[in-house]
């Protein structure tokens, strides 16, 4: 990496981990949320989660990489991940109760 580029992107590992690992978790959380809440038949909901997975992950990576710090990147990716995880967990719990 050139010195000029280094000046623009210091210590990239926080942002890289947020994009790759955090993005993966976010994509899974979004997919599971869709498979719980999307108003359609079970297979439609399952396929929706799978089809959204690559796009969500790549978007999360691009977003996290452009953050100014690793902490900010984890915030950008982590907050929606937690929200979607909470949503999916609540939905799964309610779904099991209903069944």
């Amino acid at each position: 990496m050139s010195s000029q580029a280094k000046a623009v992107t210091p210590k990239p590992w926080g942002r890289i981990s947020a994009g790759t690992l955090g993005g993966l978790l976010l994509a899974l959380a979004v997919g599971v949320s869709c498979s719980v809440f999307w108003p359609s038949d079970p297979f439609d909901r399952m396929f929706m989660g799978a089809l959204l997975f690559p796009g969500v992950w790549v978007t999360a990576m691009c977003t996290a990489f452009t953050a100014h710090t690793g902490k900010q990147a984890w915030l950008w990716v982590g907050v929606p991940t937690l929200l979607f995880t909470a949503l999916a967990t609540t939905g799964l719990f309610l779904f099991k109760q209903a069944v």
Binding site: L28, G31, V32, S35, V36, P42, R45, M46, F47, G49, A50, F53, A88, G91, L92, F95
Partner: peptide, 12 residues
Amino acid sequence: LGFLGPFMALAT
């Protein structure tokens, strides 16, 4: 798909 399957099948 093999990795995603169990997650997407969680609800139903």
